[in-house]
Design a protein around this nucleic acid. Structure first.
Length: 463
RNA sequence: UCCUCAGUAGCUCAACGGUAGAGCAACCGGCUGUUAACCGGUAGGUUGUAGGUUCGAAUCCUACCUGAGGAGCCA
């Protein structure tokens, strides 16, 4: 038996023409008439289906013609070139065997479904064209990110998922506990007694691996994390999920410009690599999801990203010929409408905005000499908004300590973070990339729930 | 958490105060090369839930549930 994957047949068609092969897969659709029938078979290895032709000469012809969608079959037959047809090759079946039956009420019909409906059948949606393409991109893009950093000598760090510090201050966290919620131990002042909890203290799921990545950057120079991240925000938007993946590079001896250079190179690398690996998938996105996708991605690969300071951005917004719902003033945080205007109208390509007012940014960002801004950078992209957020970190012990005090954080939580500054704490920088937001940007899919296999959002943890 | 919109057949939708319909899917039959195949037929409903207004409610009102879009928070 010459068992072959559908991807091989498409990629090396000439080699297989005339050969007898066996393929195994699931029926995506089936059309049958009195004497001849057609099956589009998908074996999971490739975005496209392989057409199987079966004729009345086959003893189980009638039975095969009635098989419901998603029946698993094994087909043996000749590979034949079909220059006049849509597809380059097809298989003239000699035998077709049923490997696993399906049923007529299979919920994925051979027609267009809404994304909302497909979310309700997340266990079956990977079998649809769109999700087949999305999750292949997800896999290849993740590999491309690893490749980019590994080729440049970055160390892959596994930062902890359970964390004892609320250090990042990046929103609501998920509590992790083994305490009996029906019978919580109390202290004398009637507070919950976390000393009796598993770790002897309050712990949560991590909202960022950054602080731990800094530990490793100051030992290995260039490092990155790539791991799940958890936010318990009650967000109902197309861009937020409770569980998502974040990639966080951290580089010693690097300033904010080095940081942006890496971010820009990284994005261009991921796009080029993934486009090259998955041309069929991107052709599909370009045709059915977003007609301008390929042109836009190509533009990102070729163009230099814009770089402006926050102060310049405010000036651009102030003289913009349009009314914003939120009035523009120096010191405010940029609203979604402002970010969109900058990336979609002014630059029409990714733009780094740098040097934000320190009061609207995190405590660990390095203070600039002007005393009122920090060396932060956000990368804004059309359609998605903030794709990357990063900064040069405050490496000066006294300034960092002062900032922690100003924010009224508990100094005890930061003893090791401060100590990193004491022993050779050189300048260093890093950023966080929301992996799903990258996928949205790459595929044109506009809802984060549709680029995650089993999305977790408020009130939703099925599958 | 706030604002807006939507829940009608398995799916996508129509009916907008007066007898709930269509396309697709399913089922039965036909068709010698199809490409979301095509042609004919059959079956399929407590209109999201609970109240209310009305002679009469899918349609109007109230509450709740679910989903979507936008905002905030952020990646």
């Amino acid at each position: 038996m010459n068992l072959v994957k559908v991807k091989s047949i498409y990629r090396q068609a000439e080699k297989f023409i005339g050969q007898e092969v066996t393929v195994q897969g699931w029926i995506r659709t089936l059309r049958s008439s009195k004497t001849v029938g057609f099956i589009e078979l998908n074996d999971g290895t490739f975005f496209k289906n392989l057409q199987i032709v079966f004729s009345e000469e086959m003893e189980n012809f009638a039975e095969i013609g009635k098989l419901p969608i998603s029946t698993a079959i094994s087909v043996t037959g000749q590979v034949v070139a079909t220059p006049q047809a849509k597809q380059p090759v097809e298989i003239q079946a000699n035998t077709i065997e049923v490997e696993a039956s399906s049923h007529a009420d299979y919920p994925l019909q051979k027609k267009r479904h809404t994304l909302e409906y497909l979310r309700e059948i997340a266990h079956l949606r990977p079998r649809s064209n769109l999700f087949s393409a999305v999750f292949r991109v997800r896999s290849v893009a993740a590999y491309a990110l690893h490749r980019f950093f590994q080729e440049r000598g970055f160390l892959y760090v596994h930062a902890p998922i359970i964390t004892g510090s609320d250090a990042e201050g990046a929103g609501q966290m998920f509590r992790v506990t083994t305490l009996d919620l029906m019978n919580l131990p109390r202290t004398e002042t009637n507070e919950i007694d976390y000393s009796q909890d598993f770790f002897g203290k309050e712990v949560n799921l991590s909202v960022s691996g950054q602080l731990e990545a800094e530990i490793f950057a100051l030992a290995f120079r260039d490092v990155y994390t790539f791991a799940p991240t958890f936010r318990a925000e009650n967000s109902h938007t197309a861009r937020h999920a409770a569980e998502f993946w974040m990639l966080e590079p951290e580089m010693a001896f690097a300033d904010l410009n080095d940081n942006m250079d890496v971010a820009e190179d990284m994005l261009k690398y991921v796009l080029s690599y993934t486009l090259e690996e998955l041309p069929e998938e991107f052709a599909f996105f370009n045709q059915f999801v977003d007609k301008g996708l390929l042109a836009r991605l190509q533009n990102v690969i070729e163009a230099d990203f814009a770089r402006i300071t926050y102060t310049e951005a405010i000036k651009l917004l102030e003289k913009a010929n349009r009314k914003f719902e939120f009035p523009v003033a120096w010191g405010m945080d940029l609203q979604t409408e402002h970010e969109r205007y900058l990336s979609e109208v002014v630059f029409q390509k990714p733009v780094f905005v740098t040097d934000y007012p320190k009061d609207i940014k995190a405590f660990y960002m390095r203070q600039n000499d002007d005393g009122r801004t920090v060396a932060a950078m956000d990368l804004l992209v059309p359609g998605v908004g903030e794709l990357i957020g990063g900064s040069q970190r405050e490496e000066r012990h006294d300034l960092l300590k002062q900032r922690i005090e100003e924010m009224n954080f508990d100094m005890d939580d930061y003893w090791w973070y401060l100590e990193l500054r004491k022993y050779g704490g050189v300048k260093h920088s890093g950023y966080g990339l929301g992996f799903e937001r990258l996928l949205m940007y790459m595929t044109g899919v506009s809802n984060i729930r549709d680029v995650i296999p089993c999305p977790r959002t408020p009130g939703n943890c099925e599958f």
